[in-house]
Design a protein around this nucleic acid. Structure first.
Lengths: 250, 250
DNA sequence: TCGTTCATGTAGGCGCATCTACCATGAGTA
DNA sequence: TACTCATGGTAGATGCGCCTACATGAACGA
């Protein structure tokens, strides 16, 4: 029944979510009712019932008509796993990547069902590293206060003058993409700017590490044509301005 | 039509995958056929056709009966975005977290559809930080060679003697959970060990950062009972041995 | 010119997860 | 005793994304 060596059943995302919800409800309220589950998952009660039947058939919950729902020992094992994944991913997104809690929560929800065990394990290892390595913690707090990551006005506490300001000040080899001439190649370091424009640039696929070849400027001068990852694209100068690159031409 | 300021249509995961597949096929082979798409996505041709019809109705692809499929300008915009997300996530998983390529690929696939823009943006910022901050790159390469993260025999190049060996050698305040006495509290630092046992411990929710309270040992001595995150659990001594903790009792 | 072959397309079905609309139960209350 | 009302449950529909089985059509070789 509750043999910890048994492999864990593979559930659909939806059923895993139900398991997690029940786990939290039982922990917090000592009982889980159809209505509560429906509310927590933001679905109708009628949708919960067939799900409960499926989970009950799988032996993960006890579900008798008109009685409170509880986890079986095996169900608790399954639910605990999902819950633990969720928690860790939320922490990773929030505390490491600095994603605001609400989004961290939501993104963890999406990933908790699909991340491979190997992937999960590496996230755990990342935490272990951060906690064990004397340098690990330092860098993460540096990261958190870095103006690149947190756009509020905290300042990076040392070392990297480069991104104290919004624009490059002292790394001579960085240019904006706009400054590049047709025929030149470069590599994206950073996207300056925030909000919708930044989003649009990212959506185009212009991201740190990407190699760009500048094709030409439009006759009118304004959109410039660039090529990267095998496809051509036009880019407004206003946008090109925000893309910080290092030239590839030695 | 292809106005970059227009918000991008929200597609189902499946349709996004089709868009991405078509994008890659057109780029690599100059054309995309039903058969190729079916093969790339590992589904039957008959399943591809209704998907193509839906995408065509949305104005994202050109699809006439028995003709090659191509992306419309708007479709290319949508596909490029998905593809860019995929690429960046793969790099993140592989190059930062050290997840083997195959798994990184697979996990990126899962996340690319659901990660919020905010989440994505923070991953980009992470890369920007790593590339810009003089300390960033160092720590990532340290992370990569750390024996915690890569279990092959690379050695961490300096500083953190703690995890040079499989067991703690010189951080006196670390103990294994097994050494804790009933009534004591502690905080998990690391799970030693690999493979199935490690997996089982993680599945139970014992992860770095978790607070544990030791309840009691079984009369027989072997399973120990612990409490964390509001629920009780039994743990074999063999497993408790592998859980490295710091005592919470000053 | 006529088959053969193979990609493409159609028809119909299935399972999941949701919905709406309605029905049943039972606990408290007039 | 009978009414009310929240909660739980049933029936049936929808949309998606996949399937199998079969039909169509175009290209190519005999």
């Amino acid at each position: 029944m509750n043999d910890p060596d048994t492999p864990i059943v593979q559930l659909s995302e939806s059923l895993e979510d139900y398991m997690e919800t029940i786990f939290e409800l039982v922990r917090d309220n000592k009982l889980a009712r159809i209505k509560d589950i429906a509310k927590a998952r933001d679905v109708r009660s009628a949708s919960v019932i067939p799900a409960m039947r499926r989970l009950s058939d799988l032996g993960l919950i006890t579900y008798e008509k008109r009685e409170y729902i509880d986890l079986t020992p095996e169900g608790e094992r399954v639910a605990r796993r999902v819950y633990a994944r969720h928690r860790l991913l939320t922490r990773f997104f929030r505390d490491i990547l600095g994603i605001p809690h609400e989004f961290a929560q939501k993104d963890a929800c999406a990933l908790e069902h699909s991340l491979s065990d190997v992937g999960m394990d590496h996230i755990v290892r990342f935490f272990e590293f951060i906690q064990s390595c004397p340098e690990g913690g330092d860098v993460i707090s540096r990261l958190q206060t870095c103006s690149l990551v947190n756009s509020d006005k905290k300042q990076c506490t040392g070392g990297c003058a480069v991104h104290r300001e919004d624009r490059v000040v002292n790394q001579a080899q960085m240019k904006s993409l706009r400054q590049m001439k047709p025929g030149q190649s470069c590599n994206v370091v950073r996207i300056n700017g925030t909000g919708a424009i930044r989003q649009r640039i990212l959506d185009m696929g212009l991201m740190p590490g990407i190699n760009i070849y500048v094709e030409r400027l439009s006759p009118a001068g304004d959109p410039m044509w660039i090529k990267f990852q095998g496809s051509q694209l036009s880019l407004r100068l206003k946008e090109a301005e925000m893309v910080l690159v290092v030239s590839e031409d030695t």
